[in-house]
């Protein structure tokens, strides 16, 4: 019983559940469909979800400080559209267009972060407005689909990087893995990462400890904006188009992946490898639907919604369980001390 208690209270409980769920889903897939066994199916998870992985990392940062960023999907669409417009309609080379859109995305994130922190506004309302703003701006640039035909860009998009002769991954997938590694290092081993965790745990005590709360909060939204723009580039490498409705509802997918991967919505707790598995679970569900062939795409939305719900409610129970455990242990500690004092 004690073992179970400790396991549930462990920092990585959500992570274990997620990895277990992923393995079960994958095993069911292998047993049901013949093609699931091929290693390429596994690599495809990374190729297809490269953009989502990158975006989710950004969202995880904002969730960590008990904030939220609902604008990620729209920033992604805006990035795709700007890339397509710059390269196709104005003939700017990709070497210039890619840094340009990254700067725009990052600046937009920084702007949102500044408003939220400076004026003490709710992050969801500002980022919701940001989401509508970017979607609208995408439509202002072009209401039609612009396809990217720049030979260099198309070359990058179709490049295949072999993995031990088992299969291949795309450039986007490699970028996504790099982002994951960098994020894990930043959160785990740098001053910035520690500050972010401290703010998520308790903002006023972080401030009293003399940590740069204002700067860090703005930086977190800036990181989220950068990740959305980078995700947009990865997305455009797959789609090779700019379109107003790209990444519709991606904010939900990203938040769901992050939560499924063990991020607490109340802030202060997140685990980057868990985030990866959160995305992979969604990828497996999508692969199931593709393999099955007759299920419709809207089932994904419903399943993800249900999954998110289950994990959020599980979180509520874990938090309640933890607080019960800690109150119990503090009781155990205090009673013997009081005992001898009052003979």
């Amino acid at each position: 019983m004690k073992f179970v208690n400790n396991l549930i209270a462990s920092k990585y409980f959500s992570f274990f559940v997620t990895v277990l769920l992923f393995m079960i889903l994958y095993a069911v897939g292998i047993m049901t469909y013949k093609g699931f066994m091929r290693p390429q199916v596994f690599f495809n998870l990374f190729i297809d979800n490269a953009a989502l992985i990158i975006v989710t990392v950004g969202v995880t940062f904002t969730l960590l400080i008990a904030g939220i960023d609902l604008s990620v999907g729209a920033v992604l669409a805006l990035t795709c559209m700007m890339l397509a417009y710059l390269m196709e309609n104005t003939g700017v080379s990709p070497a210039l267009a890619v840094p340009a859109v990254l700067v725009v995305g990052t600046a937009f994130g920084a702007f949102q972060g500044y408003i939220i922190t400076k004026f003490d506004l709710q992050p969801f309302i500002i980022t919701l407005a940001g989401m509508f703003f970017c979607r609208g701006l995408t439509a202002v640039i072009s209401r039609d689909t612009i396809s990217i035909s720049n030979p260099f860009y198309v070359g990058i998009a179709s490049a295949r990087i072999g993995v031990f002769g088992l299969g291949f991954v795309s450039v986007g997938a490699v970028v996504a893995l790099l982002v994951l590694i960098v994020a894990a290092i930043v959160l785990g081993y740098t001053k910035l990462g520690r500050t972010i965790f401290a703010i998520g745990g308790n903002e006023s005590s972080a401030s009293l400890m003399g940590l740069p709360v204002f700067k860090t909060k703005v930086l977190v939204y800036t990181i989220s904006g950068f990740c959305s723009a980078l995700g947009g580039i990865a997305y455009s490498l797959i789609m090779l188009t700019g379109y107003n409705l790209h990444g519709l509802g991606m904010e939900m997918d990203a938040i769901a992946s992050s939560v499924i991967g063990g991020t607490l919505l109340t802030g202060g707790v997140a685990f980057i490898p868990g985030t990866l598995f959160g995305v992979l679970i969604q990828g497996v569900i999508l692969t199931f639907i593709t393999f099955q062939g007759t299920l419709s795409a809207w089932w994904t939305k419903i399943v993800i919604g249900a999954l998110l719900c289950v994990f959020i409610i599980m979180q509520a129970f874990i938090t309640a369980h933890k607080s019960r455990l800690s109150s119990k242990s503090s009781l155990e500690q205090t009673t013997p001390k009081n005992g001898p004092a009052n003979p």
């Binding site: 919505l265 419709s296 089932w299 939305k301 419903i302 919604g305 719900c309 959020i312 509520a316």
Partner: peptide
Amino acid sequence: LLVAKFKIQAVVATLILMTAGRGIAQL
């Protein structure tokens, strides 16, 4: 239920239905 009973932040609780809702309507 989600907001009052399970004490989930309102944004996230209603975000579930915001995306899943259109899926249900399509269904």
